[in-house]
């Protein structure tokens, strides 16, 4: 088995916070501790009145890709991926995800360790 990771399609993350709370519940994290955190990035485009909003989920040192959840057979997906409001996250082998990534205009691929 190859290395696992999570692919995030940045075009669709709305910043709904579901992944953050899913992770806290899954891992019993208290206030101040996160496995995943959302960043809001507001870009004022030059020569345009249109402002661009991006939400970027990023993973912390605490994220182990829900190792126990997956290993125990309880689920095939990490908790954040399952509950993502827009299903903009995918879990899998990084080689497979990298292929998917090529077809997406803007995406990030995360893999710990």
């Amino acid at each position: 088995m190859g290395k696992k990771g999570i692919l995030v399609d940045m075009h669709y993350c709305t910043g709904c916070h579901a992944c953050e709370i899913a992770c806290k519940q899954e891992n019993g994290f208290g206030v101040g501790n996160w496995g995943i955190r959302i960043n809001e990035i507001i870009t004022e485009k030059p020569n345009s009145d249109r402002v661009h909003f991006d939400y970027l989920p990023y993973f912390t040192l605490q994220c182990n890709l829900c190792a126990e959840r997956i290993a125990s057979g309880e689920d095939t997906k990490p908790s954040c991926v399952k509950h993502c409001g827009t299903a903009c996250m995918q879990y899998g082998e990084i080689e497979d995800l990298a292929k998917e990534m090529a077809a997406k205009p803007r995406a990030i691929l995360y893999s710990p360790l």
Binding site: A18, I21, A22, K82, H83, A87
Partner: peptide, 24 residues
């Protein structure tokens, strides 16, 4: 002890919002 979305439900396809996931 834990609340999750129901992956078999055609309404939300397993998703749960922050407020559902903070139910406990």
């Amino acid at each position: 002890v834990k609340v999750e979305g129901d992956e078999n439900h055609p309404w939300n396809f397993g998703r749960g919002c922050s407020r559902l996931l903070a139910m406990t």
